[in-house]
Nucleic acid binder design. Structure first.
Length: 297
DNA sequence: AACTGGGACAACCGCTCAAGA
DNA sequence: ATCTTGAGCGGTTGTCCCAGT
């Protein structure tokens, strides 16, 4: 196997970084910044490739890095996020200030190993079901009810997400649930899988995924659905306070007034934003089915 | 004391994607 | 439209340390 293209130069050092190398890199970055990583090694006097410098800075030397054990809150958040977005470590890391994707990935992998080795352990981080889907039946019922609401509605679902997303807190007028990435349309637990496939009305309502990628200020969106917020319902790996407060913050930014937390009226794992007459005109142009959602019949 | 296996962390590799020429 | 280049990402491997034997 050949080296990566950026590391083909001779005399490029590899392996662990020495304190001297760290010092050189830190001194260079803190005084000059890092406009182009490929230029950093030469200018900083390092026998490394730019890629290696970048990684060292991002994962270790960055001043805002947070080290040490993960807190319980962080653990829960990681598990929640992972249950929704999978192995998208950078995405998960973006929700844990000071933590790097590499660190989270390492943590997850060692945790997985432990879990596999001791499958029946009752201690440690909660399982996905404990966190997200304590009541699968009600989840599915709720989704089915959503579809019934849509099908009973006389409204025509014509709206599609605005590709200029970012101007609105909830950039999509889509009133239905969404998950992120490959999980869109699928709600899965150990017993069942609910898929939007075959539910044509819901399918129709789901936005085309790629339209949102990278276009939305994630700080203004509920944390688990970066770029994927639904105007009507957010399906979220819920169950811990960190998530709740974060979503609440998003909500406050949005100046909307009614969140109904999952555990109270809906299956855990759901945030419901109910239609509210007071919010008329504050929403993005929406052609939702009439009535509140999903509680209307 | 020496060895070994596993955990934690660090670094590398190959790939994709976006921006610019 | 195509090519090149650099950044970023996720998977994988390497290294060190430590507890157990």
């Amino acid at each position: 196997m050949g080296h990566h293209s950026c590391c083909n130069q001779q005399k490029v050092k590899r392996g662990l970084w020495s304190p001297e190398e760290d010092e050189k890199l830190v001194r260079y970055i803190t005084t000059h910044g890092y406009g182009c990583w490929s230029e950093v090694p030469e200018k900083a006097g390092l026998q490394r490739c730019g890629k290696s410098c970048r990684l060292r800075w991002i994962n270790y030397l960055r001043p805002d890095i947070r080290r040490g054990r993960f807190t319980q809150e962080e653990e829960k958040l990681i598990i929640s996020l992972h249950s929704v977005v999978g192995n998208r470590w950078a995405h998960i890391a973006s929700h844990l200030p000071g933590r790097t994707d590499n660190e989270i990935k390492n943590y997850w992998n060692s945790w997985i190993k432990k879990k596999i080795r001791k499958p029946n352990t009752s201690s440690g981080p909660p399982t996905m079901n404990e966190l997200i889907l304590p009541s699968p039946t009600s989840c599915f019922n709720s989704l089915n009810q959503m579809e019934n609401n849509i099908m009973n509605s006389t409204a025509t679902i014509t709206s599609k997400p605005d590709q200029t997303a970012g101007s609105a807190i909830f950039p999509t007028p889509c009133p239905f649930f969404m998950l992120e990435g490959d999980n869109v349309g699928n709600l899965q637990n150990s017993h069942n899988i609910w898929s939007a496939a075959g539910h044509s009305q819901l399918e129709q309502a789901l936005p085309p995924l790629p339209a949102f990628a990278g276009n939305v200020d994630s700080t203004c969106l509920p944390p688990l659905i970066d770029g994927m917020a639904a105007a009507g319902m957010v399906l979220s790996a819920m169950g811990d306070e960190g998530e709740a407060s974060c979503s609440q913050e998003c909500f406050e930014k949005s100046e909307l007034s009614e969140w109904v937390e999952a555990d109270q009226q809906y299956p855990a794992g759901f945030f419901i934003w109910e239609d509210d007459p007071a919010m008329e005109g504050q929403l993005p142009a929406v052609s939702t089915p009439s009535g509140s959602f999903p509680s209307s019949a």
